[in-house]
Amino acid sequence: MEVTLKIFRYNPEVDKKWHYETYNLDVDEKERILDLLELVKGHHDGTLSFRRSCAHGVCGSDAMRINGRNHLACKTLVRDVGDKITVEPLLGLKVVKDLIVDMEPFFDNYKKVLPYFINESPLPADGKERLQSPEQRARFDETTKCILCAACTTSCPSFWGSDDYLGPAALVTAHRFIFDSRDEAAAQRMQIISETSGLARCHTAFNCTMACPREIQITKAIGELKMATITGKVS
C-alpha cells in the first residue's frame, strides 16, 4: 500500500532549526514503522538517524512519537496507524539528531531511586535461594517488565513541565523493588520518591499507562506507591 511518511528532521551540524521531510513509500501493511525508517535510510536518505536494536519490542531503543503518541517503532505496524504517518522524537528530552534524543536525564532519574536489589542480611545457611512464595513474586511481576524505553516518562505532562520530576519509569523501578518481599531498602526508596520531585508530581493523567509498550499499569503502580506513603505499608 502507498503511505506518506513524514519524519521530523534535525541535524545539529547543518540545520539552524528542525523541519519535516516527507517520503512516499510503497509498503506492506504488516511492516513495522521501524522497517519504513530502515527503508528511508537505506534508499532515500542515509543521514536519517534513529536508535534501534532488537526490532521486536524488548530492548527499548526505538521509542518515538508516531502520529502524536509514544510507541516503539518496531512494535507498531503500518496497519495500526494508517497510511498517513508522522514520526517525531520523544518530547521532554533534548533532540540530538533527527529521532535521537538525549537519554542521560532519563537514566539519571532511574539511578536516583536505588535501582538495584538491596538485602544485606546473611544468605540462607544452606547457600540456596531466598524463599519467596508465588504470591509474593506476583506482587511486583508487572513492574519487572519495564524496558526503560522512556515512552511513559516522555508522555507525562508533569515531566514536560518540570526540571526535576523523577517521572513514571523511575517510579516503576522503585515499585519493582519496594514490593519485592526480599528487598530491605523499601523505606529508603519511599523517602526518595516522597520528596517533592517524586510521587507528588503525578497527577494521574494516565498518559504513561497509555504509552507503555509493555502494557504495564503504571498509574496503578504509582497509586500503590502513593497508598504506601499514607499507610506506611508496602505489602
Partner: peptide
Amino acid sequence: IDAVLELEHMGLPFDRTPEGKI
C-alpha cells in the same frame, strides 16, 4: 547451580515453586 543461585541472591525475580524455590 551456584551461578543461578547467585543471580537469585542479586535479586533476580525468578518464578517460584509452591514452596518458594526457583
